[in-house]
Design a protein around this nucleic acid. Structure first.
Lengths: 336, 336
DNA sequence: CCCGCATGATTAACCGGTTAAGTTCATGTT
DNA sequence: AACATGAACTTAACCGGTTAATCATGCGGG
């Protein structure tokens, strides 16, 4: 390991025959530098391979140029084939890269890690914090926000939006899906709902209920946790409770896929006997048997939007919306 | 936004009636502090809610306590239903959390971002760098390593291992899979290989070739890019070239899944007409139709291992291995 | 010819820690 | 009693930048 000495501002200054301050100004593109000097300094920077030390810079600017993305630990443990968080990361990452900011990933869940995140953010390691999918009424976003740290959540926080957030139109998407089933003449429309401590779970169930109520149809609810296995179990339960149900709205594609498996196991044909609609529009749904009708939610876009919001917040841009809700869209394939 | 002033060492020192140096020593757990003073200082820290400023600390210690994980940007394109990188992230993240280090995520691929990563690492923003799956003969890991920056790769780098790496036993896993097919009496065993600019693609194809050669059977190769769609296309090609093939080893589960779809489309039964084995053992493979026989590779574990290696390297631990190869295992289900 | 004023560079203070060197003081030696 | 020793604290230098305040220089105007 060589650990070659890296040149400092001082070194560049000496080489260019100017003061540290002038080099600093050149490096930061200040306009009050004569062209000739700028040229000389740039050459020196080039020759020495100078790269500014971020720690030194942060110390005085009070900015770190990096941003934390908090992922619920539970998610990564439970959802070993979850595609939601990767997509969020992708969206956020793209935006961060465009803004030349660094992305720091943190998992949280345990009280210990929870505390760790708080200390980390408070210590000024990052200029802002994003939360990907808040579970329950997590107080952390509010706490950080109150401490003056810019925060944006993906998913409307439960218990009053005390922080800006980006979410998708769960309700509208579900309503479109359920209406689609109603219009196809389905009468016994069940749902496999998501966890009721997450807004995505709550809102999608609400959309189902409201739309069925409007249509004057009875509701039939089983609860899952967004995973395929929970979808299988929920579908079996639903069938046991109502052998004649003719449609199911599953609050996630994974659960819809599980339902598909359970229906096949029970000898039901899809969509002939039972129609099924999912929510997410993951790649996999194009290839399921049959291909899944589903509500597309723009996950990557929501990551990007969250990142853009946070950057704007950090830059102190005025008139930022507290909430942004992205549209969802019903994608009709063969399952309904 | 409040942006409450955060207390500094100085403030704590004043409150505790000692010098900055003493507080620093207490905070860093130096043994040369009297118990009484330590107590007083800790109380002051508590009361003021003091959290050390990492930038200031890094400036003098030359350590940032954070580590970069580089993901190939191309991956993020494939990412849309890729489960490999999320698993790597999970493994690395767990280990980083345990070591109380921060994880900085960077995507690279374009020459521009490539340069960005280099500058970032060289600027001392991170104490070390991990590469998740190196494409082709990427010079970046070697470059950074030569500059004295601790580097570990996931996947043996092509073109001579100039950097320590962690990989899985592709060859052994594939050999077991192909032997399984041979022992089942399959005679026309094709493969859908992965991209040949990645070690995972190369080694798996080599394993296939060597094992078939040993068995005295002819080879039959189509190339994919690890995605489901490429699996579909490759399978169609293989069938067109040899309508009588009776087995396929696909170098990824996604491609195996694609192959399954293409075989169904062609009216072939699995495993009766054609046996199929994948590689990865993603969750999805337990639920495919039929459930997929596959080679399990410990992705999360490989992320953890890579992280542990890097931390050891950073700590200057002696006698570290240049390469660690984790075992793979054939998981027999219904497809072969 | 001298003054005032831009313009552009320099000086020096500061960001918030760490740590080597120096100081103080109680204790042990002879 | 004089002095070496060592424990525990303080002083002060330093890490590598940024930036407000200051200063030098050249130029147009009176």
């Amino acid at each position: 390991m060589v650990t070659r000495e890296r040149p400092t501002l001082e070194a560049v200054a000496r080489r260019a025959g100017v003061s540290r301050a002038t080099v600093s100004r050149v490096v930061n593109g200040s306009p009050t530098v004569a062209a000739a000097i700028r040229e000389t300094v740039n050459r020196a920077v080039e020759e020495l391979g100078y790269v500014p030390n971020q720690a030194a810079r942060s110390l005085v600017t009070q900015r770190t140029e990096s941003i934390a993305l908090i992922l619920p630990e539970t998610a990564s443990r439970v959802f070993s084939d979850d595609l939601f968080f990767p997509a969020i990361i992708r969206g956020v990452g793209a935006e961060m890269e465009a803004a030349d900011k660094q992305l720091v990933l943190m998992m949280t869940g345990s009280a210990k890690s929870h505390d760790r995140v708080e200390r980390y953010a408070v210590a000024g390691h990052v200029d802002g914090v994003m939360f990907a999918s808040v579970h329950g009424a997590d107080p952390l976003p509010g706490t950080l926000s109150r401490l003056g740290i810019p925060v944006v959540c993906s998913g409307r926080p439960i218990g009053g939006p005390t922080v800006p957030y980006v979410d998708v139109d769960h309700f509208g998407g579900v309503a479109a899906a359920v209406r689609h089933l109603v219009q196809a003449g389905r009468k016994r429309i069940a749902t496999i709902a998501g966890p009721q401590d997450m807004v995505a779970g709550i809102d999608r169930l609400a959309g189902y209920r409201a739309t069925l109520a409007t249509a004057g149809l009875p509701e039939h609810v089983a609860i899952g946790d967004f995973t395929r296995e929970s979808g299988i179990i929920a579908m079996r339960t639903l069938l046991a409770e109502d052998a004649k149900l003719d449609a199911v709205f599953a609050a996630s594609d994974m659960m819809a896929h599980g339902a598909l498996l359970a229906l096949k196991e029970a000898g039901r044909r899809v969509p002939a006997d039972v129609a099924i609609i999912g929510f997410d529009d993951f790649e996999i749904s194009r290839f399921s048997e049959p291909p899944l009708t589903t509500v597309r939610q723009p996950i990557v876009e929501s990551g990007r939007t969250m990142a853009r919001q946070l950057l704007a917040l950090i830059n102190g841009e005025p008139g930022l919306p507290d909430a942004i809700v992205l549209p969802t869209e019903l994608i009709v394939r063969d399952s309904a």
